[in-house]
Write a protein that binds this DNA or RNA. Structure first.
Length: 882
DNA sequence: TCCTGCACGC
DNA sequence: GACGTACGTGCAGGAG
């Protein structure tokens, strides 16, 4: 029979770890939840993987413990537990109650002692005991029956120690852990140990003498006069330290192991607490895999009446309706529509797409711009209906965009989450209704789906007012109504129109790449003397660094790093390196760009339809998926050729590309009001050369290409808000040098420096920073006590207004350009946006007009204190438009 | 199915 | 003095 499993968790330690490992999250009620969240992910992992029969979470009791009698200063000088953490303990205990997991604390004792005692009792009963903590002291409990898991980086990442692993890692036995601590001390608990003896010396001593006692008995044999003296003088401290770090294994605990039996928790209770805490992502982990039509609904569930109709009639319409066009799949270019719900102040309707298409009144209503439609994700809705030949007009509210603008850092902009945040009625997640992956389907009982879709529409209807008010209050209504909403429609048109692809060209490039990859692969295997999976860094590492004995430059947590920057440093060491780099480069082209693109080409039209995510990035930029058309290669000629496969969709049309030159730095010059930077742009200077001349203190004529390259990296850093570390990496210099560069830059451009400081101050004052058009980004970490988190927030405060305002500008340019193309009755179509450039296709005869029009519109869309400069190019393929 | 390591763009 | 450090998407491998 398998031994019973007992899991003992050090509650304080894990909560503490989680608190410092995770950003200071809070839920919609402003309660901090990061420690609880981290603890919970760890707990779920244990429940799933270890499947304990018995479980307990131990907490420290109060301030004083029996150890203070031995040593008053025990744990003295320790930083007070931050209030943001202490307030999470009651919540944590509540959560444990919901899981029906016992937690325990004992006056005068620490969590360690509770764990030590119960581990000893478990061991006696021949249980398999597992201890979870972040505290190395617990390692003294390790034995054949007791394993100790210590958190490494993060919280769910642990090292599990048994006696062998301990010996391998620390070169000591479990019983020597206390001797080790006695010698080296522990500053975090204010345990003195022997001053001047660290881990190295302590291990050496224990290897020689085995036990602490023996060290002092045979003191004369200790090598080194200094060390001998130190040991002699601090003998008492050492023995006292040993006493302090020894965990009590016989504490007066009145609970029996039998009380700790773990029953399965109540899914309802746990999900409901998760919902309250805002742990949306964890809910699915505690609910069963069954499709949720079998799931119980929450207690406060209210009925939503659904009126299933076959046809829309005039009397049903009020002029303001919430509409949800439901699709099971994310990709709305392909997914069938399962139905449409329409909700207004009087009624809730549901109609299938087949019936809707046939209903004249429905089409008339949908296409009538004077009939308001309130939707979630206007672009998605628009494109879906467009595929059925319906051109949706009159969209006047988009819950997705509103939610995104109000707070882009909320990562769950879906109806159930928004509804919960806004204290509206409960809505189930789509996944709960339809399942996921292979099991995704409409429930057999269709009324469940109809109710769900209608419920979403009902919430949408209710939320319009709240969201509008919030946007008004944030002074973001214009951003919403004049920028993002119109843009959504334009993006929808672009996506729906698609980009033509020369499939034959892609296929030819693919076979060519295949041949070359095979040749290179053969060469590499020859040089390596064996065959292996070249795509596996895990297999490549040992070949390079063990078999070929190349110097190890960097390691990752799973082995040797084989990233490009490491390989580049090894270029001269072995001819295999160059070939690996080439293999990687070509392999990427083949898998991501040739095969990846061919996979998503529409078979009937040979067009590609990307989806722009308009509600994702923290800065206001767009992103592009399935496929990502914003990262088609350009830097290296080899990759750039991929662009030859992107062609106009009609005969005698051309590709036309137009991009802003240095838009972010111009935006910076404008908002920072920096005289020097502004003049540089006004005088049309090469900005990197200008920066180099400032930073290196030479005349522009004396700027070498090396200096210009470095200055370019500094400018890049300013635009992207990278750290001194980031700059040092990109230039291959030390952090210190990078820091000097940045400081030099800031003193050369005092206006910029002042702006940077003001931006940080503003973030501290308001809690957020904003762009030209009042796009917001909240930065709660700006006051963090954690240096990293705070630094990151500071760089974000400096960078987001720059990058975000640039995003505002190009979005506005797209709206203006769309308008001009219409009014001038041009056939030219916008196809793509790549952050600072627009790609169009147009009939050749419109080319002359576009050369004037596009740059003019882009340059004039906003007026800054510096000119905006736009370059353009064109040709028979995207490649030629360079 | 999820995570990691890597690589592409701005 | 160490932390882990612009934003995105997508691929292959490998562990569960």
């Amino acid at each position: 029979m398998m031994a019973e499993k007992l899991v003992l968790i050090d509650g304080n330690s894990i909560a503490y770890r989680a608190f410092f490992a995770l950003p200071l999250l809070n839920n919609d009620k402003g309660v901090y939840t990061n420690a609880v969240y981290g603890f919970t992910t760890m707990l779920l992992k244990i429940l799933e993987e270890d499947k304990p029969d018995h479980i307990l979470v131990a907490f420290d009791a109060g301030k004083t413990t029996f150890r203070h009698k031995t040593y008053e200063e025990y744990k003295g000088g320790r930083q007070k537990t931050p209030p943001e953490l202490s307030e999470q303990f009651p919540v944590l205990k509540e959560l444990l109650d919901a899981f029906e997991i016992k937690h325990y604390q004992l006056d005068q004792y620490e969590a360690d002692d509770i764990i030590g005692t119960l581990a000893a009792r478990g061991q006696e009963k021949k249980y398999d005991v597992k201890v979870i903590s972040g505290d190395k002291d617990l390692l003294q409990l390790v034995s054949d029956k007791v394993k100790v898991s210590l958190t490494k980086k993060g919280i769910t990442n642990v090292d599990t120690y048994d006696p062998d692993f301990l010996l391998e890692k620390m070169e000591i036995r479990p019983d020597q852990v206390i001797d080790l601590k006695a010698l080296m001390g522990d500053s975090s608990d204010n345990i003195p140990g022997v001053p001047g003896v660290g881990e190295k010396t302590a291990v050496k001593l224990l290897k020689q003498f085995d036990k602490l006692e023996a060290v002092f008995e045979q003191l004369s044999e200790v090598s080194g006069k200094k060390l001998k003296e130190k040991l002699e003088t601090h003998k008492d401290e050492a023995f006292m330290s040993k006493e302090l770090v020894t965990i009590e294994r016989n504490a007066p605990i009145e609970i029996d192991l039998g009380d700790l039996e773990y029953q399965h928790y109540d899914q309802q209770k746990v999900s409901s607490i998760f919902r309250d805490l805002g742990f949306q992502s964890l809910i699915s982990r505690v609910s069963t895999d069954e499709v949720a039509s079998h799931q119980e609904v929450p207690e406060d569930w209210d009925e939503v009446e659904v009126n299933v109709i076959r046809e829309l009639t005039k009397d049903m319409i009020t002029g303001k309706e919430a509409v949800v066009v439901e699709m099971l799949h994310e990709n709305y270019h392909q997914s069938p529509i399962v139905g449409i719900s329409i909700v207004n102040s009087n009624e809730n309707y549901f109609i299938t797409i087949d019936d809707a298409e046939k209903s004249e009144e429905f089409i008339k209503w949908a296409q009538d711009p004077s009939q308001e439609k309130w939707v979630f994700d206007a672009k998605r809705t628009l494109v879906a209906l467009r595929r059925h030949g319906i051109s949706l007009q009159g969209v006047s509210f988009d819950l997705l965009l509103a939610s995104y603008l109000i707070n882009p850092s909320e990562n769950n902009h879906d109806v159930p989450s928004i509804s919960h945040r806004m204290n509206e009625r409960a809505v189930q997640y789509d996944e709960e209704i339809y399942g996921k992956g292979a099991k995704l389907k409409v429930p057999d009982d269709e009324s469940i789906m109809q109710e769900h879709v209608t419920r979403k529409a009902a919430v949408l209807y209710k939320l319009k007012e709240t969201m509008d008010a919030q946007l008004q209050q944030n002074e973001q209504y214009e951003l919403y109504e004049e920028l993002e909403m119109p843009l959504a429609l334009i993006l929808g048109e672009m996506e729906h129109w698609g980009v033509q692809v020369d499939v034959g060209r892609l296929e030819d490039m693919g076979s060519d790449l295949d041949r070359r990859l095979n040749d290179i692969k053969a060469d590499i295997f020859e040089l390596a003397g064996e065959e292996f999976n070249l795509n596996s860094p895990k297999q490549l590492g040992p070949i390079l660094f063990e078999k070929l004995e190349l110097p190890v430059i960097k390691k990752t947590k799973t082995g040797y790093s084989t990233s490009a920057d490491v390989l580049e440093q090894l270029q001269d060491e072995h001819e295999i390196i160059e070939k690996i780099l080439l293999f990687r480069q070509l392999g990427k082209l083949k898998s991501t760009y040739i095969e990846g693109l061919l996979k998503v080409v529409n078979q009937d039209t040979n067009k590609i339809h990307t989806r722009f995510n308009q509600a994702l990035t923290q800065t206001g930029r767009l992103s592009s998926i399935e496929p990502n058309l914003q990262n088609i290669p350009i830097r290296l000629e080899e990759g750039r050729k991929i662009r030859q496969a992107f062609v106009p969709s009609k005969e005698n049309w051309v590709m036309f590309a137009s991009d802003y030159s240095q838009i972010e730095l111009r935006v910076l010059a404008h908002i920072a009001q920096d005289e020097k930077l502004r003049n540089a742009f006004k005088e049309g200077k090469d900005i990197h050369t200008q920066t180099a001349s400032e930073v290196f203190d030479v005349s522009e004529g004396e700027v070498t290409s090396q200096m210009r390259r470095q200055a370019k990296a500094v400018n890049f850093g300013i635009v992207y808000g990278i750290s001194d570390y980031g700059l040092s990496q990109s230039l291959g210099i030390t952090r210190k040098e990078a820091k000097t560069f940045i400081e030099k830059y800031l003193s050369s451009y005092p206006g910029v420096k002042e702006y940077m400081n003001e931006s940080i101050q503003e973030a501290k004052r308001l809690g957020y920073v904003k762009t030209f058009m009042n796009r917001r980004r909240y930065l709660p970490d700006i006051t963090s006590r954690n240096f990293n988190q705070r630094s990151f927030a500071e760089r974000t405060a400096m960078n987001t207004p720059i990058q975000g305002s640039a995003a505002d500008i190009i979005k506005k340019a797209m709206i203006d350009l769309d308008e001009r193309l219409r009014t001038e009755k041009l056939q030219a179509r916008m196809l793509l946006q790549v952050h600072d450039e627009l790609i169009l296709e147009a009939p050749e005869e419109e080319l002359e007009r576009l050369k004037e029009l596009v740059p003019e519109v882009m340059e004039q869309t906003v007026e800054l204190d510096v000119p905006l400069e736009v370059d353009y190019s064109f040709g028979p393929t995207w490649y030629d438009a360079k």
